[in-house]
Simulated scan of single mutants.
Amino acid sequence: MPERFFLYDETESTKTRYISFMGEHQRFDLALIQTDRYFGKRLVLDIQGSRFAIIGQDDLEESGYLEHAFNLTEEEAAELRDFLCEVI
C-alpha cells in the first residue's frame, strides 16, 4: 500500500450549536460549528438535507449563495438567511 501524503492532520477543539426551527416554508435542523479555521466563518451543516457550507457575513450578502449551497428556493433561503444573520 502506498504511503499517504497528508496536506495536514490536526485536531482542534470547536464550539458547536445545534438548533432546529420551523420557518414558513421548511423546517431547519442545523449544526453551527465555530472554529479557528476559515477566517472567522462558520461551518453550517443542514443535518436533514445532508449539505453544508462555510458561511460568513459576506456569504449571506451574496445573491444565490444559500440557494445553491443548501438547494433551497428563494423563500426558504430568505428564512435561513434571516436566522443566520442573527447568529453569524
Rank of each mutant, 00 (worst) to 15 (best):
D82M: 02
L84E: 12
T16D: 07
M22F: 00
S50C: 06
G49C: 10
D46M: 13
R81Y: 04
I47P: 01
T16I: 11
I54E: 10
T73Y: 15
Y65A: 02
N71D: 12
R27D: 00
F52Q: 02
A78M: 09
F21R: 06
Q26K: 15
L45H: 12
I54D: 07
L30V: 10
T16Q: 12
E12P: 00
F83E: 09
T11C: 02
I47H: 01
Q57A: 07
E12Q: 13
F28A: 08
R17E: 15
S13G: 04
Y65L: 06
F5L: 08
T35R: 07
D82L: 07
D36T: 06
S50Q: 12
Q26V: 08
Q34M: 12
N71W: 10
D59L: 08
E62A: 04
L32T: 06
F52K: 12
D36R: 07
F39C: 00
P2K: 15
S63E: 03
F39A: 00
F21M: 03
R17G: 01
F28K: 10
D29V: 12
D59P: 00
E3T: 06
D58M: 00
L30H: 09
H68R: 12
A53S: 08
P2N: 15
I88R: 00
R42N: 11
E86R: 08
F70R: 05
Y65V: 00
F70P: 01
H25Y: 10
E79W: 11
M22K: 15
L60V: 09
G23P: 00
E67R: 05
I47Y: 02
R42A: 01
A69K: 14
E61K: 13
F6N: 03
E10G: 02
Q57D: 05
D82S: 09
H25R: 14
D29W: 01
S20N: 05
L7V: 07
P2S: 14
M22T: 14
Y18A: 06
S50D: 14
F28W: 11
I33N: 02
L45G: 00
I55E: 01
R17V: 13
V44K: 12
F52A: 01
C85Q: 08
K15R: 15
E12S: 09
L60G: 09
P2A: 12
F83K: 02
E61V: 03
A31F: 07
M1C: 05
R37P: 00
R4W: 08
T16V: 13
S63Q: 02
R81C: 04
L84Y: 13
D82I: 06
F83G: 04
S63R: 02
E79H: 06
S20T: 13
F28R: 09
E61S: 12
T73Q: 10
E61D: 14
L80W: 07
R42L: 09
L32F: 02
H68Q: 03
E67Y: 00
M22S: 14
E10F: 04
R4K: 11
F28I: 10
R17I: 14
Q26P: 01
G56W: 07
L66D: 03
L43F: 11
Q48E: 15
I54T: 15
G49M: 09
V44D: 06
V44F: 14
G49A: 11
L7Q: 05
G49R: 15
G23I: 04
K41F: 01
R17K: 10
E10V: 08
I55C: 07
E10A: 04
L66K: 04
I33G: 03
N71A: 03
Y18N: 07
A53Q: 08
A78T: 08
D46E: 07
K41N: 14
E86V: 03
L30F: 06
